[in-house]
């Protein structure tokens, strides 16, 4: 038997035909994303003009990049942001896998309504739920009030203005991105595999690690990627839950692009972020290939 991780993915389209299928999306992205991106690349090399916010593109310089790379502040912020985004992706997947599995296998007629409820954090934009979360996580909010009432803590946990609080906020905001792909994938795997494993005496731990996890793998991969990228580029939740005390890379890019209007520097920040991600992707990809 093929392992579930390798199921599907057989070829049934000729390479030419498959390229034709991919072409419309690829051409659209190349034009509408690629052209602005080239401009952004050029802008990141432009030099500032004294007393003006219109940069000089005829005189390329690497000053913006050396400002980012030559200074621990920006690289530290990038590292923190990457770590927080990873934590967010891990947290979302940890909650989404059992939830999606339960929805797929056990929710019955409640499934559709509960799936809709899972989507709600995305339905009202980032801002309103985030402000709601602030009321829950604050020193006088419901979370600290409950923990204090139960006698679990003596003084309020500092959730607002901390990295922990931001990660909680991001997990809350992006959970739907993780649940939906996993649910879609689990729907396409027959429950009999799990039933057979239970019949054969698999312990719950073995069942989850050896059967369900591999079955859900493509969904975890898709959900993890969507959550990670969304967390990386988010700035509403980090700004509001972080109370401006925790800088993230996207917040710095936002500040430079919109408030300082230093577009060469903002563009260089964006390019740095994309380069860091591309590097991470290449490393992960090569490591995955090294595995026997």
């Amino acid at each position: 038997m093929r392992s579930p991780r390798e199921a599907g993915g057989g070829t049934s389209l000729s390479p030419t035909l498959s390229l034709l299928f991919i072409a419309p999306a690829a051409i659209l992205v190349l034009a509408a994303f690629g052209l602005p991106f080239l401009l952004l690349l050029a802008l990141s090399l432009a030099s500032p003009v004294e007393g003006s916010l219109v940069p000089d593109m005829s005189n390329p310089t690497l000053a913006a990049y050396s400002r980012i790379l030559g200074d621990g502040f920006y690289l530290r912020t990038l590292a923190t942001t990457l770590a927080m985004s990873l934590a967010t992706a891990a947290g979302c997947l940890a909650l989404a896998l059992p939830l999606a599995h339960w929805l797929a296998r056990r929710a019955g007629r409640a499934r559709r309504v509960l799936t809709a409820i899972v989507l709600l954090p995305l339905a009202c934009g980032a801002l309103l739920p985030t402000l709601g979360l602030v009321h829950l996580l604050g020193p006088l909010g419901v979370v600290n009030g409950t923990l204090r009432g139960l006698g679990l803590i003596a003084s309020p946990l500092p959730l607002l203005g901390t990295q922990l609080g931001i990660v909680i906020g991001l997990i809350q905001a992006f959970l739907p991105f993780a649940v939906l792909p996993i649910l879609a994938v689990l729907d396409r795997t027959p429950p009999v595999i799990e039933e057979a494993a239970i019949t054969l005496g698999a312990t719950p731990a073995r069942l989850w690690v050896r059967i369900i996890l591999p079955l859900a793998w493509p969904g975890l991969l898709a959900g993890g990627l969507l959550v990670f990228c969304s967390a990386l580029t988010a700035f509403v939740t980090p700004q509001i839950v972080g109370q401006g005390k925790v800088a993230t890379f996207a917040m710095l890019a936002y500040q430079q692009a919109l408030q300082v209007l230093d577009w060469p520097f903002a563009s260089a920040l964006a390019v740095t972020m994309l380069a860091a991600l591309a590097l991470a992707a290449v490393v992960t990809f090569s490591l995955a290939r090294l595995r026997p």
């Binding site: 402000l131 009321h135 509001i240």
Partner: peptide, 13 residues
């Protein structure tokens, strides 16, 4: 800063 506020709601609460 105790808070960097972006709207009146945040700071007034």
């Amino acid at each position: 800063p105790a808070l960097t506020y972006t709207s009146l709601d945040e700071i007034f609460a």
